[in-house]
């Protein structure tokens, strides 16, 4: 995995303190309805410029292969890379604290609010937007495949097979990651060696 560059390199920045890490993750978590990933891409890559799109995809790959919530894994890894365990703790706290309070408050108020038809309708609309956000994030990251040693055709094949296996056929994640992922990593291994 490539090292995250410092401020002077290619317009990239890095956080100065654990407090800054906390603030950025807190901000992106509070914007993340129906998942934080799309906001994370926008905030970390486009706004803060802490990483390139390729680095974001790399971290996301790792976060998805590792067990546990992807975005939490990513936050821990990003915080740890910049500022060690203090950065990891700050990223995790920023990501979780405020949303946890909100979600528990909602849980406490649930009976009065959530069963109303207007609220249910709003939830459906928000769900549709959340779907669009995730799809847009994927489309934004497609460009990073250009430098992939497997070549674009093999990449497209693996991406489409994954979409079919998980999205349409609903095969279990573990099997798809081990099977397709194993084949893809082996292909990349062979191409890099040539």
């Amino acid at each position: 995995m490539s090292e995250l560059p410092g401020d002077d390199d290619d317009g990239q920045r890095r956080p100065r303190s654990a407090m800054e890490v906390f603030r950025v993750f807190n901000r992106l978590a509070l914007q993340g309805f129906g998942g934080v990933l799309a906001v994370a891409q926008r905030e970390l890559v486009e706004r803060e410029r802490w990483m390139t799109p390729a680095q974001f995809l790399e971290l996301l790959s790792l976060g998805q292969v590792l067990p546990g919530p992807n975005i939490v894994n990513m936050a821990l890894m990003i915080g740890d890379r910049f500022l060690g365990w203090r950065g990891a703790a700050a990223a995790l706290a920023g990501l979780m604290c405020a949303p946890l309070l909100i979600v528990l408050l909602l849980a406490a108020l649930y009976r009065e609010t959530m069963s109303q038809p207007m609220v249910a309708g709003a939830l459906r609309g928000m769900g549709a937007v959340a779907a669009g956000l995730v799809i847009a994030t994927a489309l934004k990251l497609v460009g990073t495949l250009r430098g992939n040693p497997m070549g674009l055709k093999a990449c497209a094949l693996f991406a489409v097979l994954t979409l079919l296996a998980i999205g349409v056929l609903r095969w279990p994640m573990v099997g798809v990651v081990l099977g397709l992922g194993g084949a893809a990593v082996a292909t990349a291994w062979a191409r890099i060696g040539r």
């Binding site: 990251l141 999205g167 990593v185």
Partner: peptide, 20 residues
């Protein structure tokens, strides 16, 4: 390098599947 290159298209496929 093989791991990150190989997993990149899968990760994109997973994102699209999640959206779907």
């Amino acid at each position: 390098r093989a791991f990150t290159a190989g997993m990149a298209p899968l990760t994109l496929g997973l994102l699209l599947a999640t959206g779907w």
